[in-house]
Computed example of a mutant assay.
Amino acid sequence: MTPEQLRAFCLDFNAAVEEFPFGPETSVFKVAGKMFALSALDGRPLTVNLKCEPEIAERLRADHPQWIVPGYHMNKRHWNTVTVGQLPVRMVRELIEDSYDLVVAGLPRAQRLRLDRP
């Protein structure tokens, strides 16, 4: 997955936006003002921070210790840093979608319904 593909995939979700609150080098992808992905798209290797359920986060880290680690500068219980190019694209896409879905699930019901994701 290239940086352009990562950006396009993140922005393809309903109401997703890209912002730069930490400077022009760090893309923050949000839904309803809440972050679901963060990446320095010009970084080498390409990594992305993604929200994850704590039990799943631990399992992913154990299964892929070189490529999935506790979230850099994030709450280590709820965020992973994923090295994009080292994992199957399908898996990376699923992790991004799971992150988006977790953030949406935490939104008030009225906002979730507006996003068509009850």
Rank of each mutant, 00 (worst) to 15 (best):
P3F: 03
E4A: 14
R7D: 06
C10F: 06
N14T: 15
A15S: 13
A16T: 08
V17K: 11
E18T: 05
E18Q: 11
E18L: 08
F20Y: 13
F20G: 09
P21T: 02
F22H: 13
E25S: 12
T26V: 15
T26C: 13
T26N: 06
T26G: 01
S27D: 03
V28E: 03
F29Q: 03
F29S: 08
K30P: 00
V31C: 00
A32N: 01
G33Y: 09
K34G: 00
M35R: 05
F36S: 10
F36N: 01
F36Q: 01
L38W: 02
S39T: 07
S39F: 10
S39Y: 04
S39D: 06
L41H: 08
D42Y: 13
D42K: 14
G43E: 14
T47G: 15
L50H: 02
L50D: 01
K51F: 13
C52F: 00
P54M: 09
E55G: 04
E55L: 09
E55Y: 08
I56Q: 12
A57V: 11
E58A: 15
L60D: 01
L60S: 00
R61Q: 13
R61C: 06
A62M: 04
D63K: 14
D63G: 02
H64M: 02
H64Y: 15
H64L: 09
Q66H: 14
I68G: 00
I68Q: 06
V69P: 00
V69K: 15
V69E: 09
P70D: 06
Y72A: 10
Y72D: 03
H73W: 06
N75Q: 03
N75V: 07
R77M: 11
R77I: 08
T81D: 05
T81A: 02
T81F: 01
V82R: 03
V84G: 04
V84I: 08
L87A: 00
P88K: 08
P88L: 10
P88A: 13
R90V: 14
R90M: 11
M91K: 07
M91R: 08
V92F: 03
R93V: 05
R93F: 09
E94N: 13
L95F: 01
L95G: 06
I96D: 04
I96H: 00
E97S: 07
E97T: 11
D98H: 13
D98K: 12
S99V: 00
S99F: 01
S99N: 11
D101H: 11
D101A: 14
D101E: 13
V103C: 09
G106K: 10
L107S: 03
P108A: 11
P108M: 05
P108R: 12
R109N: 05
R109A: 14
A110I: 01
Q111H: 03
Q111F: 10
Q111I: 10
Q111P: 00
R112W: 02
R112F: 06
R112K: 12
R114G: 13
R114I: 04
P118H: 04
P118L: 12
